[in-house]
Design a protein around this nucleic acid. Structure first.
Length: 423
RNA sequence: GUGGGUGUAGCUCAGUUGGUUAGAGCGCCGGACUGUGGCUCCGGAGGUCGCGGGUUCGAGUCCCGUUACCCACCCCA
């Protein structure tokens, strides 16, 4: 059989899994302080949740989804992102009654059928937060600040990151702007690539993202939404920036920042890392999606949030030299002199564990010498030596690996003695 | 979907102009007088040289195909 994990997936071995748990734990602790509660939605949804939420014409929906029929013929899709599911769940359970709001966070794997490369996997992990029911600019600022602070908390210095912000307008001003850009594209059709010409009809704003140098040059002269925002959108955007300014969060306005998901309105943002990443340098991003709930048939409910990628965040952390705390696997190593005392040794290790001490012992029949090597490698501060001689007196030997001092203690008091020595 | 690069022990890699039993470091296991660690020394286990063809007296070394991984385009977290 093929023992490899499928393309674009990877096993998270202990070193990585530890980092995953660290990121999750940090998010739990931090987002709790911001008032967010956990939510777990299914890893797959009715396909419609994503086609209607993210948009039929987006790359994610049109060519990157893992869609399949179950045995009853339903069309299901492995979630390519988290927001659509959370909003669908909020609608199903009426989590946002009129006039209220709710704050949620999630963490888990997402799935997109893409060509893997640095910082891009087919199964990748995200942590995200969402606020539903909040329309005020302070909510936008809160989400952005939470994202920024999270990166700082896990050891990525501000000097290694760039925060980009923009406003995409709303239904009052964006349609007109879209047409204006589409018109601009058609007027410069000869100077733009084929893909961009098609975008005039499908998603003109994406032309701003085109990597083609010629297109970039042409689009640099295109009309900017910043100059076309309706008054409410302009005021909202201005206040978001004021909130960020007041906290000293360093951001850059990027008028060409466009998100690839159709549901975004008004505020959008992205954090890019300068070090450790390849060309996929966006380690987190998000924005406001005030019309998404309606797209699902719910009442108008403003919403916003962000998602950050585990894999990319970890790459940025490594580049910054950020350390993931390592757990203490063995404060004490229980060594047995020979097989005749295996039972007693096991009982001692169990008693230590019951007493809250990290204790390890051998299960493969190593020599006593080898057990000491193990103890040393694991960083055990103490070794409990269980041998026939000691047991004859109802005792065991305790060795301090630092000072090499050995003392005999009563078998019945091992846990107590160990705890006193460990301080 | 397109392009480039790389595939030799668990890991990181050497392998001369194709030539006898494929190497190193690290890791792992064991030992250096009898129940004891970190250093050092000695020994050992471990390899279908990605896979399949071809050229050749002979290929890890050359050619073709294929596959996997990596990176980039694209897109996004």
């Amino acid at each position: 059989m093929n023992a490899r994990a499928p393309k674009g997936t990877t096993d998270m071995l202990p070193a990585t899994a530890r980092a995953w748990e660290y990121l999750t734990r940090t998010a739990q602790e931090m987002f709790a302080r911001y008032g967010y509660e956990p939510v777990y939605t299914p890893l797959f949804e009715h396909t419609e949740v994503f086609t209607r939420g993210i948009g039929e014409a987006t790359d994610i929906v049109s060519k990157e989804m893992y869609t399949f029929e179950d045995r009853s013929g339903r069309s299901l899709t492995l979630r390519p992102e988290g927001t659509a599911s959370v909003v669908r769940s909020a609608l199903e359970h009426t989590l946002v009654p009129q006039g209220s709001s709710i704050k949620l966070y999630y963490a888990g794997p997402m799935f997109r059928y893409e060509r893997p490369q640095k910082g891009r996997m087919r199964q990748f992990w995200q942590i995200g937060i969402e606020i539903l029911g909040a329309a005020e600019p302070s909510a936008d600022a809160e989400v952005i600040v939470a994202l920024w602070r999270f990166y700082e908390a896990v050891g990525i210095p501000a000097s290694n990151m760039r925060l980009l912000v923009n406003s995409m307008g709303d239904e009052a001003c964006r349609p007109a702007y879209r047409e204006k850009v589409a018109g601009y594209i058609r007027s410069r059709a000869g100077d733009l690539c084929g893909e961009c010409n098609r975008r005039a009809d499908t998603n003109p704003l994406r032309a701003f993202d085109c990597k083609n140098p010629a297109c970039a040059g042409v689009m640099a002269e295109a009309p900017l939404l910043r100059d076309e925002l309706c008054e409410p959108c302009a005021a909202h955007y201005a206040e978001v920036k004021t909130r960020l300014d007041e906290l000293g969060i360093p951001y850059t306005e990027e008028p060409k920042l466009v998100r690839g998901l159709d549901y975004y309105t008004r505020t959008v943002f992205e954090v890019q890392a300068d070090a450790g990443l390849g060309s996929q340098n966006a380690i987190g991003g998000g924005g406001r999606y005030d019309r998404l709930m309606e797209a699902y048939g719910g009442k108008p409910t403003p919403g916003l949030g962000f998602a950050l990628g585990f894999e990319r965040t970890l790459l940025a952390m490594e580049a910054a030299g950020a350390e993931v705390p390592a757990p203490l696997l063995a404060e004490v190593y229980v060594a047995r002199v020979d097989a005749t005392v295996a039972g007693e040794a096991f009982a001692v290790a169990s008693a230590l564990r019951d007493a809250g001490v990290a204790a390890e012992l051998d299960h493969v029949g190593r020599s006593l010498k080898s057990q000491f090597k193990q103890a040393d490698k694991l960083g055990a501060r103490l070794v409990v030596i269980v041998g026939p001689d000691e047991l004859a007196a109802g005792e065991v030997t305790l060795r301090d690996m630092g000072t090499k001092e050995e003392t005999r203690v009563a078998l019945a008091d091992v846990a107590g003695a160990v705890r006193r020595l460990l301080g």
